[in-house]
Design a protein around this nucleic acid. Structure first.
Lengths: 297, 297
DNA sequence: GGTTTGCCATAAATAAAAGTTATCAGAACA
DNA sequence: TGTTCTGATAACTTTTATTTATGGCAAACC
C-alpha cells in the first residue's frame, strides 16, 4: 500500500472544492486522468471512498468531508512552513549565539547589540562572555554560532574574519603625565599591572614588552581592565589597555593615557565561526555590523 | 524549484533525530545517497541550509531547529489523518443522514437509534421524517444518505434492499370485536379512515380494498395512524394499520385489532440509497441493524 | 428512441522522480 | 602517511506520475 503524499492531498483539496474532475485537474495544471488516478490511489491508500461519483456530479462522502477539514489544516501548515523558510532565507533569524572576550565585550557590545537588534529584529541574540579558548571550544562544540576575539586563533575548523585593528595605550597616574613614554622593553622594569592569566590581552601586552609570558608575578594581576585602571589611579603601578577601553575606563580615574611610539602595540579583532556552517554569508553580514559598530565608537 | 514533499519532511525528521546520514538513511530504509540527495533538494527548495555538515558530526542550524519543530507537528497531523482514515475504514462514521416515512418512524426508530448508537458510537445520526417522494428527492440530491421506506420505489439511481414484510391489521371499536372480519372489498362499504394523500400506506390500503386511489373522500383523512386509531375509538369508523404500530397505537384506545384472512394485506419495508455511493457496504450493515430492530419489536 | 454530449475511468506510452551501487574527497585518527 | 569514517557525486535502474488516446455510461436533446 502506497503512502500518503502531499501531492495527493493537494489534488484532493482541489477536487473537494471544484467537485468536478476536469476543472479540478485544470486548477492543478494537470490532465484529468492524472487527477483521477491520484484520487483513486488516495482512496485505495486510505481504504475508504472519499468521493461519490454520480453521472452528473461529484460529491464528497461524509467521511470525505471530515477528511477535507483535516487536509486543509495540514496543507495550510505546510504552506506556512514554506513561507517560514522563505522568509528566513539568507537573512539571519532565530537564535544567534555570540561569544565575546572580556577585553572587548564591555566596550563594543552596547553598540553591536543596538545595531543588530535594529537591523535584525527577528534575532534571538544570546551573548556569552569568556576567554578565547573556551569560546573556541564552545564554537567547535556547536554551543556558539560565532565569536568576537583577537586574531589569530589558528583553529583549522574555523574561519577568521578580521574586523579592525586597534592600538594599545599606556595608562599612568596623572602625576606621570609629563614624563616621557617608555618603550616596550622599559616597561619590564616598571610595576606593570596585567590581567590574570588566560586573557589573550595579557599575552599580547607581555609580548610587546618582550617578556616571557610565564614570568612569576607578585599578585598584581587584575581581573578586568577596569580594575587595572583603578589600581593605576591608586598609584600602584602602570598598565596598558586597548584603545576602545579608554573612554569608558579612564573617564573617572585620575590617570592619563599615552600612545607608544614607533612600534605601537596593537591587536587585530575578528570574528570566527565554523567553516562548516552554512550560515557563513549571514555571519559575514554580522561581522560588518560589528566593524561599523567599532568605527562609530 | 521543486515542491516540498512529505517524503522529504520524513527524511529530514529522521536526520534531525539521528544527526548522521548513514543511520538516518537506515532508519528510513533507503540508501545513504538517496537521503543525501533528498535533504539537499529540500534545502535547495527552501533556499536555506538546514544542517551543518562538519567532518565528525551533523548538526541542525538554528533555522533547522525551528523548522524541525514545525515539521514534527505536520508529520504528526498527517499520521493522525492516516489513522483517522484507517479507523473509519468500512465502518460508518461521521454524519449519517437517515430518512424515514411517517408510518414507520414512530414505531421502528426508537429501537434503530438505540441499536445504532450502541454499535456505531462515532456516528453523528440525523433523522428526517417525511413522505417517500420527498425522501427520494433528497436522496438523489445528496441531502440524505439512506432512507427507510416501503418498497418498491423504482428509481433507477437507487438501490433497494428489502428488510422485512409486515401485515396490515383491521382496527375496529371494541364493540365490533365479535363481528366477522370483512374482506378487502367489503371495506369499501364501511367508513374506512385513511391517512392523507401522499402517504404510501394510504395507497397500499386502498389497493387492498380494490378502490381507486383518487376516490373522493368525505374529510375523514387523518394525519397520522395515531389520529386514525383515536377516531376509531371514538366510533367514527374503522381503519387499517401496519402491525408494527399495533402495540403503540392501540394500547390506550378502546379498539380491537383483527387480522385479515387469506389474502393478507402487507407491505415490504426496505432501505434505499444511491447506487453511486461508495458506502454501500456500510449502509448494508445499517440495513441489517434495522432488520434486527424490527425483529426485536 | 436514437443520437449527442458531458464526464469520469482505463490503457499504453512517455516523462519525471527516487532509489541503488560504485566511487570520490575531506578530515580525523593512529 | 596510510586508514577509517562520513557525506557528496555520478551513472544507471526502478518506480511513480503524467500525457494522449480511447471507452463507457447516463443524461439531455432533438
Amino acid at each position: 500500500m502506497a503512502n500518503l503524499t502531499l501531492r495527493q492531498l493537494r489534488y484532493f483539496e482541489a477536487l473537494a472544492q471544484h467537485r468536478h474532475f476536469g476543472r479540478a485537474a485544470e486548477a492543478c495544471a494537470i490532465s484529468q486522468p492524472a487527477l483521477s488516478v491520484q484520487i483513486k490511489d488516495l482512496e485505495e491508500t486510505l481504504g475508504t471512498g472519499l468521493f461519490e461519483r454520480s453521472p452528473r456530479q461529484v460529491r464528497l462522502t461524509s467521511f470525505g468531508e471530515a477528511f477535507a477539514e483535516r487536509v486543509r489544516d495540514i496543507l495550510r501548515a505546510v504552506d506556512e512552513l514554506d513561507d517560514f523558510a522563505r522568509s528566513a532565507k539568507d537573512r539571519l533569524t532565530g537564535r544567534f549565539r555570540l561569544g565575546v572576550i572580556p577585553t572587548i565585550a564591555p566596550y563594543l557590545l552596547p553598540a553591536v547589540i543596538g545595531k543588530l537588534t535594529r537591523s535584525h529584529p527577528a534575532l534571538d541574540l544570546h551573548v556569552r562572555e569568556t576567554l578565547t579558548p573556551r569560546l573556541v571550544h564552545e564554537l567547535l562544540q556547536g554551543q556558539l554560532d560565532t565569536a568576537i576575539v583577537a586574531l589569530p586563533v589558528a583553529e583549522p575548523a574555523l574561519i577568521e574574519t578580521p574586523l579592525f585593528s586597534e592600538n594599545f595605550v599606556l595608562v599612568r597616574p596623572d602625576s606621570d603625565a609629563q614624563k616621557p613614554v617608555p618603550a616596550g622593553d622599559e616597561l619590564r622594569n616598571m610595576r606593570l599591572l596585567l590581567l590574570e592569566e588566560g586573557h589573550c590581552f595579557r599575552d599580547q601586552t607581555l609580548a610587546f614588552c618582550n617578556a616571557p609570558s610565564a614570568v612569576p608575578r607578585d599578585g598584581l594581576d587584575g581581573s578586568s581592565l577596569s580594575t587595572l585602571v583603578q589600581m593605576v589611579g591608586a598609584g600602584i603601578g602602570v598598565t596598558i589597555i586597548p584603545e576602545m577601553a579608554v573612554d569608558v575606563e579612564t573617564r573617572s580615574a585620575n590617570v592619563c593615557c599615552s600612545r607608544f611610539e614607533h612600534p605601537q602595540p596593537e591587536r587585530t579583532i575578528g570574528m570566527i565561526w565554523r567553516k562548516s556552517s552554512p550560515l557563513g554569508d549571514a555571519f559575514a553580514e554580522v561581522a560588518e555590523v560589528v566593524r561599523l559598530s567599532f568605527q562609530s565608537l
